[in-house]
Amino acid sequence: MTAVNMQALLDELQHMTEAVLSNLLNLGEEEFEQFADQRQRIVEQMQSYQPSLTENDKQKIRDILSNDSIILQRMHVLKDEAGQWMEKRGAIRIQQHAYQQAYSVDSLFIDHRK
C-alpha cells in the first residue's frame, strides 16, 4: 500500500514539474508560488515513506530534481525584473515628488535642465 501511495506522489510531482517546464516562459510569480506550495505539500507527504524508498524511487526523485536549476533560473529572472521595476518606480516617485510640492501662491519654481 505504501509503494502505491509513494508512486502516486512521485507521479504527481513529476507531472507538476513537467507542466511548469512546458509553460516556463509564460508563468508569472503567482503560478511559481503555487507550484512551490504544492511541491512542498507533496514533499511533506513523502517524508513518511522515506525509509521504504526503492532505488527506482530515488532515481525518479533525482530526475525531477535535475530540472530545478532551469526553474530556479526563470524565478531569478522574474525576481530581477521585479527589482528593476521597483527601482524605476522609486526614481519616478522621487522625480514626481519634486513637482508636487505645495508651494505658496506668490513663490516661483525654476526648473534648470541639465
Rank of each mutant, 00 (worst) to 15 (best):
V4I: 14
F35C: 00
I94N: 11
R93D: 15
Y49C: 08
Q59H: 10
L53W: 07
A82N: 12
K79Y: 10
D68M: 01
L27P: 01
E31I: 00
M86C: 10
K88Q: 11
D68K: 06
E30R: 06
I94W: 07
M46G: 03
K60V: 03
L27A: 01
A3T: 11
I42F: 09
H76V: 06
G90A: 14
E44V: 09
A98H: 09
R41D: 11
Q34H: 12
Q100M: 12
M16T: 04
E87I: 07
H76R: 13
I71G: 06
H112Y: 15
L10M: 04
S107F: 01
P51V: 09
M86P: 01
Q96L: 15
Y49I: 06
D80A: 14
I70V: 12
W85K: 15
I61P: 01
H76G: 00
P51S: 08
D111P: 08
R74P: 00
H97M: 13
Q14S: 09
Q47D: 12
E33V: 01
D106F: 09
S69C: 05
T54C: 04
A19M: 08
T2L: 15
Q96V: 11
R74T: 02
D111C: 11
E18I: 03
E44M: 12
L21Q: 04
E55P: 03
T17H: 02
L53E: 06
L21R: 07
Q47N: 10
F109V: 13
F109K: 11
L25I: 05
A82M: 11
Y49K: 05
S48K: 12
I110E: 06
Q101W: 01
F109I: 07
S104L: 10
L108V: 05
M86N: 15
A19C: 05
D111I: 15
A3K: 13
Q7D: 08
E87M: 10
Q34W: 06
V4T: 14
Q73R: 10
F32G: 06
S104G: 08
V20Q: 04
Q50W: 13
L53D: 04
M46N: 02
K60D: 01
Q34T: 07
I94V: 13
H97T: 10
Q95W: 11
Q73E: 13
D11E: 05
N23M: 01
I92A: 08
R41I: 09
G90S: 14
Q84F: 13
